[in-house]
Design a protein around this nucleic acid. Structure first.
Lengths: 225, 225, 225, 225
DNA sequence: TATGAATGAGAGTTCATTCAT
DNA sequence: GATGAATGAACTCTCATTCAT
């Protein structure tokens, strides 16, 4: 499936030595992650890179296209990670296994690319981000596309409750997943779970507990209804 | 419970006629909600209010203190609404009734004070918001304080599963609640539920379904474990 | 007859001390006259005035509105001069007297406000001048409005040839007048007449000769037709 | 008559394939005509040509020398056209026939090379055009050189009034001619004649009327003096 | 107390020109 | 000879903040 690019760095940029490109991308990502789109300063970037202000405009048309390019890098990273995390699933894979793996993939992503995750949060909530809805839909549709069929399968096979509409199942999984990851990345969002200070094994336990709870529900089994 | 002020409008501001104060507060809220903290322009505000630039600096020390003051107004509004929505609960009130009421209170809040809700989202995710963590903790601790005892009670009485730690119960409820409201306010966050276009009765049904699902869980009742 | 303003300096500017206003207007006019609209640099202006860059933007919305304001000043100056020069004409005034006075008024205008005349030439021929056609029509319609009725009267009374359409009469007068003044202001446009180096009395003679020639024509009187 | 070059493209440029040279010249002319000297962007030109930025600097020393070269092309075109239009005149040719032909040659020139005419107008009135006076004198002397002798002849033979100095005759002819052509190229300069929308035959009639009027004068024949 | 003119750093963007390859 | 990446000064415009009145 071909993915059209919203951004387009110039040929000049494409042909840059990989090392230089990587440095520039890193500096731009850091700036956008730290400050958000609007507040990010290209002055600051060129200053930290030690390149001329005009050079940035040899590489990109304008600030917006720079931002879109950096977001493209994020999209690619996410896609790669999701595909890798689901790569070994068998067709009949279990929904909860998939959720679990995605959760850990998310945690790994945040650990490894905290700036990219920051960037994503910025896009989600900052004002006047260029093409925000388009950008979000690129990333946010993945879980839906990914979990939807698995939920359907689970419902068909009787492992997932047929009493709950598919969209609600996905909503709950997605909300839990998202919020858990947000809480992992920003301690003030973890609702008191203390995720940021957990060691890996504790984290695993917490994830498993979350999934189990989602699956089984919060009520005691005496009075469901 | 005494709430310290983060901001401190001057005496000058306090002694302003209530009507003028209200106008100024409304204009400031609108600007911060529309543009976020960083992009909000005091120039724009004084322009729309028709007051002098210097007057704002007679009322407040600087942009930050203005922002904090407006956030204080939001905090007060939230407290008021939560207290009102829980005001008639009996001590032994059911957790799910409380969640339900909170959900509807949230929806009502968004409908009635969309700008305040926007402001809150800005604070949650915008960068370089002054004293963000402090601000958030003020609002985000409320659900914990509010739901925590109810969950504990439910567990003590056997209505809530004792197998799930209290903090996880609150996390899940809070995550679902927050995400549901975010989805209601920003359609691209509703995960496909279509909340923004629902009529009131549909919304009620959706809330009830969400709560029921939380309570009963996603798994079919044949293979829980 | 009320004249709407295309430009609008702010109240701030209007209330400036007359002396300061005059200095700013003079500096702006000089810059636009020297460099044209596009090349004019507001940096240069504030530098020469010794005011802050931002101050200009307290006075005007943007470069375009600054330019339009300066052009408004020119329009006013032209109107004033034309009215003064035609103020003493009797209703049945002779066309050639009117042309003559206008010519001298133009010369006096160029002598007294060379920068304004420069500005006018810029508008006539520079590229991408904001609202050029509108600006030009403001000034260029004056001669047409002014000479038209006089020519009509002359033709009615038999002093102006009825064989030549009114529009052509006005065209020829206007072209001669314009070109003479352009030649006076820019020596390389005087077609060899050497206007720039003439003393006042020579200039008077030249004007009179031009008018007489226009009136009587270039052909010898033996072979008209 | 040898014409020195003001500009000097490098040998590299001279040895370029004629076709490539022509393309480059056309692109440069278009840019200078569209934007004027100051605003013309070499970036734009190399972009549209698809050649390297550095190549332009292999061909020319700098922007100024590029501009002067393009103007040289214009000068050559004008000379060619004037010579062709006067090529078949006999020595005793009539002044008015010459004026008429020049007028039509001008119209044809504008129709065929609108960009070159634009370029000429730019030079006439734009500011800070390099060596403007020198450039203008090259083109503006042609009419004088051309008409001067014919006027002298006409006066000697009694067909042109001896009461009017030769320089004034040429001035009037030149002014009318120039202004007519300017009005043809820029409708807002035609003084209401409506030249831009005329068909060919109307245009011919208008030219003839203009010449006849110049020749015979504007006064009625009853009271010349 | 209220005013609003003045400030000046900093924003994104453009462009002619250079020079190592 | 051709390339095109790099430069950096200059541009218009914005804004929170100050302070004399």
């Amino acid at each position: 499936m071909m993915q059209e690019r919203l951004s387009s760095p110039t040929n000049t940029f494409s042909k840059l030595p990989a090392e230089k490109k990587a440095k520039i991308e890193a500096a731009l990502l850091k700036e956008f992650a730290d400050k958000g789109y609007q507040k990010a300063s290209l002055n600051t970037v060129v200053g930290s890179l030690g390149i001329a202000k005009g050079s940035l405009y040899q590489y990109f048309a304008n600030k917006e296209s720079i931002f879109l390019y950096i977001f493209d890098l994020f999209t690619a990273k996410v896609k790669g990670m999701l595909q890798r995390s689901s790569g070994h699933e068998l067709p009949q894979a279990d929904l909860w296994q998939a959720v679990r793996r995605t959760m850990f993939a998310g945690i790994a992503f945040i650990d490894r690319y905290p700036d990219f995750y920051q960037l994503y949060l910025n896009v989600l909530f900052e004002h006047e981000v260029p093409q925000r809805e388009e950008l979000i839909s690129r990333v946010r549709l993945f879980p839906m596309e990914y979990f939807g069929p698995l939920v359907a399968l689970g419902q068909a096979q009787g492992r997932i409750s047929r009493a709950v509409p598919l969209s609600m199942v996905v909503f709950l999984i997605d909300a839990s997943l998202d919020r858990f990851l947000q809480g992992y990345a920003r301690s003030y969002l973890d609702g008191g779970l203390g995720l940021a200070t957990m060691g890996p094994s504790e984290l695993v336990a917490e994830v498993d507990l979350l999934i189990k709870t989602l699956k089984n529900g919060l009520g005691s089994h005496e009075d469901q209804g």
